[in-house]
């Protein structure tokens, strides 16, 4: 009888211990073996990308890329139905040790790109690669660093090869070639 009582007590304690663990206030757990984000994520070398960022103020506070009347803004949810034409291809790639896919859109044969956060529908980057399109402020591939400064003012950070502007939860990065001309333009979501 005593054995039964003691056994019941010990087993109850075990279960209580596990229940206590289950009720702890730890942050969201690994959640299984699959809740993992991209190891190959581009950009920052200080951290992997989050699962997606949606900034409710992004439309009004971030840099906006306008394409044929369509506003594309980082840290907002992508809406393919608003794309002005179907001159784009999209494809998804996997990430290391992760079930999550990263979707990318290539518009007008590489004129510009849009990449979403891994496993999400929110826009992480927009990259302009040729002078067919320009920023809303009129800067396009081939502009000089001075023209960029004229349009946007002094950058938050800069090097000989990069001018970086910040606004809301977005960054605008102008990559410069050795002649000091813009050769690529990046809208990047901050998180």
């Amino acid at each position: 009888m005593r054995f039964t009582k003691a056994a019941a007590l010990i087993l109850s304690l075990s279960i209580a211990g596990m229940s206590l663990a289950a009720c702890s206030n730890e942050p969201e757990p690994v959640s299984s073996d699959i809740n993992i984000i991209s190891t190959q994520a581009q950009g920052k070398n200080t951290g992997a990308l989050p699962h997606g960022v949606v900034d409710p103020n992004a439309e009004s506070e971030n840099f906006v890329f306008k394409y044929k009347g369509c506003n594309l803004v980082v840290n907002t949810v992508v809406d393919e139905s608003k794309f002005p034409d179907d001159d784009y291809v999209d494809f998804e790639t996997t990430s290391c040790a992760s079930p999550e896919l990263t979707r990318r859109y290539e518009f007008k044969n590489g004129t510009f790109w849009m990449e979403l956060y891994p496993g999400s529908e929110s826009i992480y980057t927009i990259v302009i690669c040729n002078d067919i399109v320009s920023t809303a402020e009129g800067i396009y591939i081939g502009c000089t660093a001075d023209q960029v400064r004229e349009a946007y003012g002094e950058p938050a950070q800069s090097t000989d090869a990069l001018l970086l502007y910040e606004k809301g939860s977005s960054e605008l990065r102008f990559s410069l070639n050795t002649n000091g001309e813009v050769d690529q333009i990046f809208y990047v979501g901050k998180y």
Partner: peptide, 15 residues
């Protein structure tokens, strides 16, 4: 597949 260019960094030093 084609991939967009890498985002340029202010510094390329490793941590």
């Amino acid at each position: 597949a084609n991939f967009p260019p890498m985002i340029p960094q202010i510094s390329y030093d490793f941590g």
